[in-house]
Amino acid sequence: METTIKTEMEVATRRNKVHPKKMALWVALVSLAMMFTALTSAYIVRRSAGNWLEFSIPTIFYWNTLVIVASSLTLHAALGAFKREAEGAYKTLISASFGLGIAFVVMQYAGWQQLAAEGVPLTINPSGDFVYAISGLHALHVIGGIAALAVALVMAFIRKLRRTPARQLRLELTVTYWHFIGALWIYLILFLSLQR
């Protein structure tokens, strides 16, 4: 079954530049982007209606932006190492990306605690609730990405690094998704800090 599908895919790829699975991921990312567009639009609509608590975004969120950008960079470097078949570098970089991914989620949690400590716990006012809801839904998507990274990490340590098209495709899909959630966070943090 697996071989048939793959053959069809490869046949298709020969005539089309974008691999069908990559195309499918891009299409899916558009739909994820719509989900967050909806939330940020709802934020604007709700904010203009008044009764809106003003507060500043927890500083941890800004520092955390650096974390997710760093993880994107290490993961991109990991893809480079994979293509060069540099096994040691690949293992190091993929572990670093995985660690930074976990750190991001942990720090988001710390960010929520900071927000609550600053006097904006959940259910006080929609303006705070939106921050929790938007960053929470984003964190769920990061956790999804971490799951994909975990698979890559385990594979990196139990299998010898060989650059096969199937493995490269899998890694490229993971990298694309990871960059997406990084870019999404940058959009969200800019949105949340500018729409005050």
Binding site: M34, M35, R46, T123, D129
Partner: peptide, 25 residues
């Protein structure tokens, strides 16, 4: 479908929060 259904999920997400943890969206 791809552009509109995710928006419904967002709407439901906020609704779940209203129902479950007492937010007031």
């Amino acid at each position: 479908g791809l552009l509109s259904f995710p928006v419904l999920v967002s709407a439901f997400f906020l609704m779940m929060l209203d129902r479950g943890i007492g937010t007031s969206f």
